[in-house]
Design a protein around this nucleic acid. Structure first.
Length: 374
RNA sequence: GGAGGGGUUCCCGAGUGGCCAAAGGGGGCAGACUGUAAAUCUGUUGUCGACGACUUCGGUGGUUCGAAUCCACCUCCCUCCA
């Protein structure tokens, strides 16, 4: 039911072109996955996401468990049916909330005691519960429960944390046995330490997961550290399994991630920044609220084929944001997700044509916001 | 005609002798956002030759070491009475 096919390797870099078979269809990789934490990609409805070109979306164990509750979603026929999305879904385990809700939780060997950010109630998240929740949700790809350690953290702490994450991964695997329809990914941790990244990767590969996530990155560390960590991690992962870099989605990092052998990415960046008026383009970011666009009747991006750029001007979009109209957030989200899917499509094409590095060079030459990391 | 209330920096609105270039909000300008506690948050918003100086609180004049704040007159606005 779940299978990764490596279709082509870039001869000059670690970039790979592949596909991923899931119970809800095939995914072409490298792929960008929009985030729909609360069973919705904020402001977009599923048929719009399909039109934009989303192959798979993310959702979240912690949030859906707290509200509306995984039992209800199970009763509704699973997350796909509940939210009316029939393509693949990947759910995060709540490991990121261990990081983002640091002030509301306590970590023990058993698991993480969360105090709900909604009503203050306490909930013990164990690897077993996290598997049970994701099983109830019925997502196609599920994540092992991990700790996304903050940046910066002491070597000693990161080591203890990653070793615990490995033990949790083992428990997840045990608990997951009866639900083979879902692909369980282990998550490599290790902070910004090369030796710990190697250790984590090695331990998880021994557990033999159908796919591997790389976590604990893009949590505030310098980009060169993230890239260094990727370079030493991906070669340690099995070639015939997908690699997923969690939480990464700026255009430059997508290009650099692919170059270092990553197949899957997710990020809230395109959707979140969209809601605050930032449009992502191949040439650089545009903050549509800037005064310079007040009377600019041209589209956000002349080259872009998305619905927003085909039909609306910068002046109109700016007006929507100034007036705080919801349509502004929707049209910007539409554009940004489209922009990242479009970028990934170009990346896939360039790998197929053996010119990924040329594409990369063009990208950095033309994007005023980013420069290549070498 | 009579009685009362009021005119504050782009707007609304605090302030009633020094700690006031003047609270707070709005608006404006700009920045941030990376497995979503985010349709959010932050900075800035009189001028300049700018760690200091200058011009501002309806207008004019006055009191005072010192006035957005006190006094006089003028002017405009609002409410009530006739």
């Amino acid at each position: 039911m779940f299978e990764y096919t490596l279709k082509k390797k870039d001869p000059k870099s670690m970039a790979r072109r592949g596909s991923l078979q899931t119970p809800h269809g095939e995914i072409q990789t490298p792929v960008f996955m929009p985030v729909g934490t609360q069973a919705t990609v904020k402001s977009m409805d599923p048929h719009e996401l399909k039109e934009i070109g989303s192959q798979i979306i993310l959702s979240n164990t912690y949030h859906l468990y707290l509200r509306p509750g995984h039992e209800l979603i199970k009763k509704a026929g699973g997350l796909h049916k509940f939210m009316n999305w029939d393509r693949p879904i990947l759910t995060d385990s709540g490991g990121f909330q261990v990081f983002s809700l640091q002030d509301n939780r306590k970590i023990t060997e058993e698991g993480v005691m969360f105090q709900s950010h909604i009503d203050g109630s306490k909930h013990m998240f164990t690897p077993e519960l996290v598997m049970e929740i994701q099983n109830a949700l019925g997502s196609d790809i599920i994540m092992a429960f991990d700790e996304c350690a903050p940046w910066p953290s002491e070597h000693d702490y990161v080591k203890k944390s990653l070793e615990r994450t490995t033990r949790w991964a083992k428990r997840c695997k045990e608990a997951h046995k009866k639900t083979e329809k879902q692909a369980l990914f282990g998550i490599v941790q290790g902070g910004g330490y090369e030796d710990l990244r190697r250790q984590s990767a090695k331990e998880l590969v021994e557990l033999d997961f159908p796919g591997y996530s790389i976590g604990g990155l893009s949590v505030g560390e310098p980009k060169n550290i993230m890239y260094d960590m990727l370079e030493i991690t991906t070669p340690l992962l099995p070639e015939n399994k997908p690699r997923y870099l969690m939480g990464v989605g700026s255009m430059d990092a997508l290009v650099e991630g692919v170059m270092r052998g990553v197949d899957m990415f997710d990020c809230v960046l395109p959707t979140r920044t969209a809601r605050t008026g930032t449009f992502l383009t191949m040439k650089g970011k545009i903050n549509i609220m800037n005064a310079q666009y007040a009377e600019d009747l041209s589209p956000v991006d002349e080259q872009c084929t998305c619905y927003t750029c085909q039909n609306y001007s910068r002046a109109y979009l700016r007006h929507l944001f100034k007036a705080k109209e919801i349509l502004g957030a929707r049209l910007a989200t539409w554009h940004n997700i489209h922009a990242l899917h479009d970028l990934m499509g170009k990346i896939r094409e360039s790998i197929e044509q053996d010119r990924f590095l040329e594409f990369r060079k063009e990208f950095f030459d033309n994007n005023r916001d980013y420069s290549a990391y070498n």
